[in-house]
Amino acid sequence: MSDPASPFKGKTGLRRVLNAATYSWSGLTAAFRHEDAFRQEVFLALLLIPLALVLGETGIARALMIGAVLLVLIVELLNSAIEAAVDRISLEHNLLIKRAKDMGSAAVMISLVNVAVVWALVLLN
């Protein structure tokens, strides 16, 4: 009986780590190249992260502020992945596809609200 595992899961050790890094870099560059929202959020992060390092009075404050910004990028990547996968399945109007895309968008919005709340709480003490 053959092993049901994916043939892509056969690598171990350093080769696996290098493959994962390559796939991750490909995902980041694809998102930057093809997703306007991700590009905008990267530029926002390039502004906010240095600002957090200056405005945060403690290491924990800086970590919270930077973490909130990075969370937006993470959620946007997941949202873009959902949209790409769903679009691959069908471009026809479908209520379940709309729901999935709307939920991904809502997750991005909540992560952006999280940035505002965290930054306000940290900066206003």
Rank of each mutant, 00 (worst) to 15 (best):
R15I: 13
R15Q: 12
R15T: 15
R15V: 15
R16S: 12
V17R: 05
V17C: 05
A20M: 08
A21G: 12
A21Q: 07
T22W: 09
T22E: 11
Y23L: 07
Y23I: 01
S24Q: 06
S26G: 10
S26R: 14
G27M: 07
G27Y: 02
L28N: 03
T29M: 12
T29D: 09
T29A: 12
T29I: 11
A30I: 11
A31I: 03
A31M: 08
F32Q: 13
F32V: 13
R33I: 06
R33N: 12
R33E: 14
H34L: 11
H34T: 12
H34C: 06
H34R: 11
E35K: 06
E35Q: 11
E35S: 11
A37G: 09
F38H: 02
F38E: 02
R39L: 08
Q40S: 09
Q40L: 09
Q40I: 09
E41N: 14
E41F: 07
V42Y: 05
V42F: 03
F43M: 15
F43H: 15
A45P: 05
A45H: 04
L46Q: 09
L46D: 05
L46F: 15
L47V: 08
L48W: 01
L48G: 00
I49E: 04
I49W: 02
L51H: 03
L51D: 00
A52L: 04
A52T: 06
A52F: 02
A52E: 02
L53S: 02
V54H: 07
V54Q: 07
V54I: 14
L55D: 00
L55Q: 05
L55W: 05
G56P: 03
E57W: 06
G59I: 01
G59H: 04
G59A: 05
G59L: 08
I60A: 12
A61M: 03
A61P: 01
R62T: 02
A63K: 05
A63P: 01
L64N: 06
L64F: 03
L64G: 04
M65C: 04
M65T: 00
M65Q: 01
M65W: 01
I66T: 09
I66R: 00
G67T: 03
G67Q: 01
A68R: 00
A68S: 13
V69E: 02
V69C: 05
L70Y: 03
L70N: 03
L71D: 11
L71Q: 13
L71G: 06
V72W: 00
V72P: 00
L73S: 04
L73H: 02
I74V: 14
I74Y: 11
I74W: 10
V75Q: 08
L77C: 05
L77P: 00
L77G: 08
L78D: 09
L78Q: 08
L78H: 09
L78V: 13
L78K: 12
N79T: 12
A81I: 06
A81P: 03
A81M: 14
A81E: 13
I82C: 07
I82W: 06
I82Y: 11
E83S: 07
E83Q: 13
A84Q: 14
A85P: 02
V86H: 03
V86Y: 04
V86K: 05
D87I: 04
D87P: 04
I89M: 08
S90N: 09
L91S: 15
L91H: 14
L91F: 10
E92C: 10
E92T: 14
E92L: 14
H93N: 13
H93S: 14
H93L: 07
H93M: 10
N94P: 02
N94L: 09
